[in-house]
Design a protein around this nucleic acid. Structure first.
Lengths: 244, 244
DNA sequence: CGGAACGTTGAGATTCGTCAATCGGTGTGG
DNA sequence: CCACACCGATTGACGAATCTCAACGTTCCG
């Protein structure tokens, strides 16, 4: 199974970060692997799996998580289409986390052998793939700042801002609206609070007329105030061009 | 200023992860840059700085942090000697975080131009440098799990376990003892709690006879129980060999 | 001696988790 | 069509965890 247009969102995102040569674009399009469909609620990548492939998310929303023995789960990042969700595994070889499908997802499993060949031949492209994982780390840091130092409404606001910008970058959000197929349970697991608290925090943002969140659909009513509450600055997503 | 033996801890750490060829080792030793000394309490890298160099920590302990406008600061990772503390900047170009010196630090500022040349010539070494940043991300994820889902004593226990393993890997800890030049204020900023709570949590671990922490020196009295309390598993630090 | 930095303690307020119940929508079998 | 089960969202009550404020102790240094 070749990648073809399945790769479009991924390539478009890379091109927002730095120009690709024709050769590089072809090298990316030359990546092939198994297409895999995962149902909502299922696991895309098991915890602590030893990996030989890395999965590119084609469609759907998923969450990277770590868990305690009690079963308590903490999402550490949300993956949107165009994300190479476990590129980390390419150099880690053993993943320290699992990936959960929030909605039905389609992924392209790219064998590490192909990625390795790519790194042997295309240094600039390698740096761009490297950048993908570094942006993941930057997202983790923003979440750490939120969990460690922001109150519940600000944390939620930050998550909404981040997801909106990232979804908009792959044409999956516009006009301050997006689909967000997360239950309040899952939302809590991303923000570090209980379901009950997730619910009440959501209501707090509603009461302030900042958002509407109904039926897996979110509308941001006042981006300015929401971003200010969250102290959100999208620079860390590195969606601007920069010669690397 | 050439790097020479200054690089020893860094190279040793890389070699715990995968073998280096003679050529690769020489390429690393060929890295040169300005040596810089920073006093305890000062900033090694300013927030949101645009960077042309990446700093390798030669000696001392430092902390990567993000901050809110209120001034509240959240450390997102602690850097130990041998860490390439802002290698992220090499591909990000603009850092989303600052780095604070906990103790007097010495760093080697390696120009990005040199790193770029290295990625053009040494794909395997590039993957190893890439791995450095991916391990940073793995550390962030563990901290997220801790902040989101673990209680205060477990969080502190986890930090101590992580630092012990990382310091031991560069011969700066042994016999369950290490120097940890962190104030309780800084400790709180790493764990996401107030100074007061940092103090009380520390006392809780002391009361349970798990650690002694006095005068910037920590002794772990019962590694087994401490690691169990933290649910600490060092796999994510990727200190074992793996062909990449 | 005085001040500064760090650690420690107590008290009260706030945030947040847990438990348990309820509500509404949806799908299924009869 | 209706009864029922199930899932996710919502609510209330209560207790636990954590923060803030303020004071005090200790050590070090000029």
């Amino acid at each position: 199974m070749t990648a073809d247009n399945q790769m479009a969102p991924f390539i478009r995102k890379l091109e927002r970060r730095d120009d690709l040569s024709e050769v590089e674009r072809e090298a990316l399009l030359g990546l092939s692997g198994r297409l895999r469909d995962i149902h909502a609620g299922q696991s895309i990548i098991g915890l602590a799996a030893r990996v030989q492939v890395s999965s590119l998310l084609i469609s759907g929303l998923c969450g990277r998580y770590s868990a305690l023995v009690s079963g308590a789960r903490q999402f550490t990042e949300i993956g949107v289409p165009g994300d190479f969700i476990d590129l980390h595994g390419f150099v880690m070889k053993r993943l320290d986390h699992g990936v959960h499908a929030f909605s039905d997802c389609r992924v392209l499993d790219v064998p590490h052998e192909q990625l390795k060949r790519l790194t042997e031949r295309h240094p600039h492209l390698t740096r761009l793939l490297w950048l993908e994982t570094v942006v993941d780390a930057a997202i983790h840091r923003q979440w750490l700042l939120a969990l460690g130092r922001q109150n519940a409404p600000a944390r939620l606001a930050r998550l909404i801002c981040e997801l909106y910008v990232r979804l908009e970058a792959v044409d999956l959000a516009r006009d301050r609206q997006m689909d967000l197929p997360l239950t309040q349970q899952e939302l809590g697991e991303a923000l570090g609070f209980s379901v009950v608290h997730a619910n009440r925090t959501l209501q707090a943002l509603r009461r302030r007329d900042l958002i509407v969140w109904r039926d897996q659909h979110v509308e941001i009513l006042d981006w300015e105030r929401l971003a200010q509450l969250a102290e959100f600055d999208p620079d860390y997503l590195r969606l601007h061009k920069e010669r690397i």
